[in-house]
Design a protein around this nucleic acid. Structure first.
Length: 802
RNA sequence: GCAGUUGUGGCGGAAUUGGCAUACGCGCUAGACUAAGGAUCUAGUCUGGGUUAACUGGGUGCGGGUUCGAGUCCCGCCAACUGCACCA
């Protein structure tokens, strides 16, 4: 009993042994693919916040191994991206070199976690052998018509000097650096993710993902039903098409508004209004999206033209305003101020008429002080008067279709993906521009297009990437006709590699295919994906899009990449997310040294519910460290002791199995740790005050503990005289019949207050229990008569007395 | 503004989904062991009254309700966090 728990020695010992004899064995078992969101290997290294997700997924992986699965638990590097490039600009070090150093450092730190990562399957997005396939996918998309070039005003970050996808703009600011985003007219490569909008939306239903993430994605895709309606411009050939979700309000339209960028603006503007309109359009184009959002007051200008309401012939003045978005719907709207808040504000601002066409049932006519957006009864709507507005929505749309003035349609908020970046450290887009053949994809056998050496990594800011300056790289013969042509010099966004990396893990060395059918069938899709919520729309939406595309061209056989998703909460310190910039990071290094990897692993789980943010407190780790010491003590003081297996021990052992398994299956890792502590306290009590704890119970405890504290579990397994690795066991199964308590203390309530506790034997009948209960509270009834008795077996007896 | 999440001791957090509120741990208090303790062990620790007791009241952000019984369900608020933000 004098053997000390020396965590450093033990952990080194088992790490060495595992390297020679991995605990994860195939043996024809069923597969389980448990994946971490792979990190960007930054220079600053890991803190205890990073540990959390990695510990969660590792505990889960080891749990699955013990449950009999062959587990794939890989790790890799999302290594393209701005920090390495910015570092290169500052220090003149090639990003590849800095990245390699960071990867090495990260890997060393990651090994401290002692996860069951299979390092033979490591991937790195910046490795040409990897990005060959990132480029290959792009070529396939180009061939399928899903990658296309377009000159358009896109989100531009003046700080990063690059274009951004819609998803990368948060509150009008660059997701990466926080600089307000401006618009810039640029030739862009776009990916037609909108072609997958409906499938991306619909397939969310069957995913075992947090509702929050599903909702964020479906809101981002933003499907809405409505109708497109044609409005004739008075005195012109021109017709204006609008999209509305509220065809039921058509009779209430009193004006129209076009986005400043709408194609028909110049044509329909009347000569006297020309200067004013041009002025407005010019200023609207200068506004950044932040300014545009901050404008509370509506602005706008009248074009001088009128449109005709197709249902009642009313003359509707046509205005221009930047509250109408050019790239949603048709860029033009019919305005019903009575029933739309924004139109109402605009009508008040410019003193335009307001016609109510829906009224609350039973209400009379009265002036509207704000837009009435609820449902109600139709008025002032010709043949539709008296109809419920909810029905009129459909009825009016049907009528428009019959008359040939409109069509029922669907719109999505999702926009195509701006895929070009004007930076150096990314995958070159594998395209050649030929003056004769046009846009030609690089032939597959010539992939990868390797990122060339460059003198300056500095972004040019002109919309050209630094690659454009390398003449000998840019100038190539056209792959089709052989005449002089030029390479595309834009690179891909960081999301390109991460959109499909999880497929590559299963077949990392394959030089002929992205992934072989055989390996894909064996391992994919991912069964459990663990990572932060920050990728709810970006990475997770892009990955789903890529997977669906790869499914469509026959590379994989499934449509969704991640069957189950778990978002771990953040680790906070002093109320803020742990980050280097806030200066509140806690390094795992000292903690591992002082308390050991096992203690830190368990504390990462114990700190709080895994899906919620938790506040870090260094002192808390003492608790799990003491616990592990007590487990150590418990096992050692019972080794060699002849302990008879009592009913009590059997009961506790089975209860422990049940509690741990149940909590694990619900992903309640924090309370699983509590359960271990509780039972260990009970075992210690038995060990000290009664005969001890038997070997089977101790062995069971050790097996259950193995996913959490693997080093200690192995060491104790060995100390107990057991054969092989603790991970060669099967996860224990509880025996319900042995878990039962022979008797339980049950509370007795009188009028809702606990007045006594009685001891009830297992299987005791209701009458006997109630008689006991009556006896126990007899003196506390104060002469009141019992009106009602409620008996909930195993829980409570409730007596009502008056 | 809209949507979602959260609100329980000094602190992190439990509560089998309607059944003994505060498990487990941190911290704190007292004691034991000790030359010493930032180690370990023992006892205590929501709060008011009560003799340090028995006992007895209150108590899960606030106000109502349903129920024998509510941290949990319903209605109405408040606060914090997250996401979206003129998507017609």
């Amino acid at each position: 009993m004098s053997v000390q728990y020396k965590h450093q020695e033990i952990e080194q010992k088992w790490r060495r042994i595992w390297e020679e004899r991995p605990v994860n064995k195939e043996e024809g078992r069923e597969k389980y693919y448990c994946l971490d969101m792979f990190p960007y290997p930054s220079g600053s290294g890991l803190h205890v916040g990073h540990w959390r997700g990695y510990v969660l997924s590792d505990v889960w992986s080891r749990y699955k191994i013990l449950q009999g699965y062959h587990v794939l638990h890989p790790m890799g590097w999302d290594a393209f991206g701005l920090p390495a490039e910015n570092y290169a600009i500052k220090m003149g070090v090639h990003p590849a070199k800095a990245t390699a150093e960071n990867v090495e450092n990260f890997k060393r730190q990651l090994k401290e976690i002692s996860a069951v990562y299979d390092w033979t399957k490591e991937v790195n997005t910046t490795d040409p052998g990897f990005y060959k396939w990132t480029q290959w996918i792009f070529v396939q998309m180009f061939k399928a018509g899903l990658a296309y070039e377009k000159e358009m005003p896109i989100n531009w970050c003046p700080e990063c000097k690059t274009g951004l996808a819609n998803e990368e703009v948060v509150n009008g600011e660059c997701d990466r650096c926080g600089t307000p985003v401006t618009k810039k007219n640029l030739r862009q490569w776009m990916l037609k993710i909108t072609a997958y909008a409906e499938r991306l939306l619909k397939d969310l239903e069957d995913l075992d993902w947090p509702d929050k993430v599903k909702k964020m994605q479906s809101d981002w895709i933003g499907k809405s039903h409505g109708a497109e309606i044609d409005f004739q411009v008075e005195g012109m050939e021109e017709k204006l098409k609008v999209f509305t979700t509220r065809p039921d309000t058509l009779y209430g339209a009193t004006f129209m508004v076009l986005a400043p960028e709408h194609g028909a603006v110049a044509k329909i503007t009347q000569p006297p209004k020309k200067e004013e309109v041009e002025h407005y359009v010019f200023h609207a184009s200068m506004k950044s999206s932040v300014d545009r959002m901050q404008d509370k007051e509506k602005t706008g200008v009248f074009t001088g033209s009128y449109a005709v309401n197709p249902l009642n012939g009313a003359k509707l003045p046509i205005w221009i305003s930047d509250y109408v978005l050019a790239d949603y719907g048709t860029g033009a709207i019919m305005c019903v101020p009575a029933h739309d808040e924004r139109d109402f504000a605009f009508a008040k601002q410019f003193d335009l008429p307001i016609t109510q066409v829906i009224r609350k049932e039973g209400a009379g006519e009265e002036e509207l002080l704000e837009a009435y957006t609820e449902e109600g009864v139709m008025v002032n709507s010709g043949p539709f008067d008296g109809m419920r507005s909810t029905l009129a929505k459909e009825a009016v749309a049907d009528y428009l279709e019959e008359q040939g003035i409109g069509d029922k349609t669907t719109n999505y908020k999702l926009r195509d993906w701006v895929f070009s970046r004007q930076r150096y450290w990314g995958e070159p887009i594998p395209i050649v521009h030929c003056p004769y053949c046009g846009t030609v994809p690089v032939p597959e056998e010539d992939l990868p297009v390797v990122l060339p050496e460059v003198e300056s990594y500095q972004p040019t800011g002109t919309g050209e990437s630094p690659l454009a300056a390398i003449e000998e790289w840019v100038n190539v013969p056209c792959p089709t006709c052989g005449k002089p042509a030029k390479r595309e010099t834009n690179t891909m966004p960081q999301w390109a590699g991460s959109s499909w990396y999880f497929l590559r893990y299963v077949d990392v060395d394959n030089s002929r295919e992205l992934v072989s059918k055989e390996q894909a069938r064996k391992w994919l899709p991912v069964d459990m994906y663990v990572g932060g919520i920050e990728h709810a729309v970006l990475h997770l939406l892009y990955s789903r899009f890529y997977t669906k595309f790869l499914h469509d061209i026959g590379v994989v056989e499934f449509q969704e990449p991640f069957t189950r998703l778990f978002n771990q909460g953040m680790i906070c310190k002093n109320g803020a997310k742990m980050s280097k910039s806030k200066g509140n990071v806690v390094s795992p290094d000292n903690l591992v040294q002082d308390y050991g990897c096992d203690s830190l692993r368990m504390y990462e789980l114990f700190v709080g519910p895994p899906e919620l943010d938790s506040e870090w407190d260094d002192r808390g780790i003492e608790g799990v460290y003491r616990f592990l010491n007590r487990v150590w003590k418990l096992v050692h003081e019972n080794i060699g002791r002849e302990v008879p297996v009592t009913q009590e021990l059997e009961k506790l052992r089975n209860q422990l199995i049940y509690e741990v398994t149940n909590r694990m299956n619900n992903f309640n890792m924090n309370t699983t740790v509590s359960a271990f502590m509780e039972f260990n306290n009970k075992f210690l009590d038995l060990s000290k005050n009664q005969g001890g704890v038997d070997k089977e119970t101790l062995s069971t405890l050790v097996v259950l503990l193995a996913p959490f504290a693997p080093h200690m579990a192995e060491e104790l397994w060995e100390a107990l005289g057991q054969e092989g690795s603790v991970f060669e066991n099967e996860w224990p199964v509880h025996d319900e019949s042995k878990m039962k308590e022979t008797s339980v203390q049950m509370p007795v309530q009188v009028n809702g207050k606990i007045k006594a506790t009685i001891l009830v034997e297992d299987g005791e009948d209701k009458e006997s229990v109630l008689a006991k209960a009556r006896g126990a509270v007899e003196g506390k009834l104060d002469g009141r008569a019992i009106q009602k008795e409620v008996y909930v077996p195993g829980r409570i007896i409730s007596i009502v007395a008056k």
